[in-house]
Computed example of a mutant assay.
Amino acid sequence: MTPFIHHVSLLTRHSDENRAFYIDLLGLRHVKHTVNQENHRMIHDYYGNYYGAPGSVITFFIVPLLGNRYDNDHFLNTIGLKIPMGSLSFWKNRLSKAAVAYTEKPNELHFFDKDQVEIHLVEVAQEPSEEQQPVDNNIPSSKQILGLLSTEFHVSEPQQTIDFFGRLLDWKAHNHRIALNQTDFIDILPSANQKNMRMGRGSMDHVAFAIADDEALDVLYEKAKMQDWQIEKIVNRGYFKSLYIREPGGNRVEFATVSPGFTIDEPLERLGEQLALPPFLANQRAEIEKNIYEEK
């Protein structure tokens, strides 16, 4: 399977302003409203294309009273998003009307969300699929975001992280960039500050890369054990099965299967409309709903 970014997951404090930015402004669909499976009191929201397809999804853990982040010795940074060729002017106008400041590069717009997460909108030679249903909003289907493009690893020793991806996945870097496919990539960059990082508002908890199926994930798990990487866990999330590893720079990397997807606990037409729980949490619904953190 051709490599691509499955999803990225970040932290935010305020769900209302987060949803306003990613749903109302950027036009993504709210494809899953669920809980953090490590802490059932914490809401976990997923945004993506109409289907919530791998390669389109950005997720946020809602953490009340979350403090500021400190991007120091290691951190993940930026969300690159693909937009169709010829749509840059539309997005410049949309951002301006929303009073979102941006900088422009050839075929690119750079700006920040409310948590100071850097967003890149980049025109790519990729047309929306004819069978791809657009999200129901006020953005023309020919201008809607196509999916994830890129992110950055900031680490003290970039070569060690490059070697990690090379040994485990046979991915090659050129000028600190790993091209995943014809459009998508990750950059592995030296961190400028060697103080300890601290997670906070806008921190990216992990980046997930797509894996074809359970069998391929199990093979990767065995290879990671053989190569003695820092494995955190392999776990079934319901919507996908995941392997978590700390790369040598300290950032969390997830490898996630492309199926079964978000329709295991609610129909496609109603995704994200209510609190959804995967089957293994369904019998705990009353307790979970009672104890969800209140936003301050």
Rank of each mutant, 00 (worst) to 15 (best):
T2F: 08
H6I: 15
R13C: 04
R13K: 09
H14E: 15
E17G: 07
N18P: 09
A20V: 13
A20K: 14
Y22G: 05
I23K: 13
I23D: 13
D24I: 11
L25E: 08
L26R: 11
L28Y: 07
K32M: 14
Q37A: 02
N39I: 00
I43S: 09
I43T: 12
Y46W: 11
Y46N: 04
Y46M: 15
Y47C: 06
G48T: 02
Y50G: 08
Y51A: 15
G52D: 02
G52L: 00
S56V: 14
V57E: 04
T59Y: 06
G67F: 07
G67T: 15
N68I: 08
N68P: 14
N68Q: 12
Y70G: 13
L76Y: 02
N77E: 12
I79K: 03
I83W: 06
S89D: 12
S89V: 13
K92E: 11
L95P: 13
A98M: 08
V100S: 08
Y102V: 14
P106Q: 11
H110T: 09
D113F: 13
I119V: 11
L121T: 05
E123I: 12
A125I: 10
A125C: 08
Q126P: 03
S129I: 07
S129W: 07
S129Y: 15
E130R: 08
Q133N: 10
V135H: 01
D136E: 04
N137E: 08
I139G: 11
K143G: 05
L148K: 05
S150G: 05
T151M: 04
E152R: 14
F153Y: 10
S156M: 14
I162L: 09
I162Y: 11
I162S: 06
D163C: 10
D163R: 10
G166A: 06
K172C: 14
H174C: 15
I178E: 12
A179V: 08
N181E: 05
N181T: 04
Q182D: 11
K195W: 10
N196G: 12
N196Y: 03
N196Q: 04
M199V: 11
G200R: 01
G200F: 06
A208F: 13
I211S: 04
A212P: 10
L217M: 11
D218Y: 04
V219H: 05
V219L: 03
E222Y: 05
E222M: 06
K223H: 09
Q227F: 10
W229M: 05
Q230P: 03
K233L: 09
R237T: 01
G238K: 00
L243E: 02
I245N: 12
R246H: 13
P248I: 01
P248N: 00
V253C: 15
E254R: 09
T257R: 01
G261S: 06
D265N: 02
E266H: 02
E266T: 10
E269W: 05
R270G: 06
L271P: 12
G272A: 01
L281I: 02
Q284H: 03
A286S: 03
I288P: 00
E289G: 00
E294T: 06
